[in-house]
Amino acid sequence: MSKEFTINEVATHKTADTGMYIVIDNGVYDVTKFADEHPGGAKILKRVAGKDASKQFWKYHNEGVLKKYTEKLKIGTVKEEAKL
């Protein structure tokens, strides 16, 4: 779970074939296997796969939901990229 990803690396994981990763508050989550279990449907997760989904996540969920799934789905964090 300690792997660091760039935003560009996360962006390459947007289909079931490559794995569907989303970012929520700097955490990277693999939702590939969870998509079919998602109460709101897989379509919603497919729409945000490969992107920062923080805004959409917090609109519909509270911190308890994130805590519940963090151990199962979190695979790393987004690393700070050097600013030029």
Rank of each mutant, 00 (worst) to 15 (best):
M1F: 15
M1Q: 14
S2V: 12
S2P: 10
K3G: 03
K3F: 11
K3H: 12
E4M: 12
F5I: 03
T6F: 06
T6W: 05
N8Q: 15
E9M: 02
E9R: 07
V10A: 05
A11M: 14
A11S: 15
A11P: 10
T12K: 15
T12V: 12
K14H: 14
K14M: 08
K14S: 13
T15P: 11
T15V: 11
A16W: 08
G19P: 03
M20D: 04
Y21I: 03
I22C: 04
I24S: 01
I24P: 01
G27P: 01
G27H: 08
Y29M: 01
Y29P: 02
V31T: 10
V31N: 02
V31E: 06
K33A: 15
F34M: 11
A35I: 07
A35V: 10
A35H: 02
H38T: 09
P39N: 09
G40Y: 08
G41Q: 04
G41K: 08
G41T: 01
A42R: 14
I44N: 03
I44W: 06
K46F: 04
K46T: 12
V48I: 11
A49W: 00
A49K: 04
D52L: 07
A53V: 07
K59E: 12
K59F: 10
K59W: 09
K59P: 00
N62D: 13
E63G: 01
E63W: 05
L66A: 13
L66P: 01
K67V: 05
K68G: 07
T70C: 03
T70Y: 04
K72A: 13
K72R: 15
K74F: 00
K74C: 04
I75R: 00
G76F: 00
T77G: 08
V78C: 09
K79W: 02
K79P: 01
K79T: 12
K79L: 01
E80N: 09
E80Q: 12
K83G: 09
K83L: 11
L84M: 13
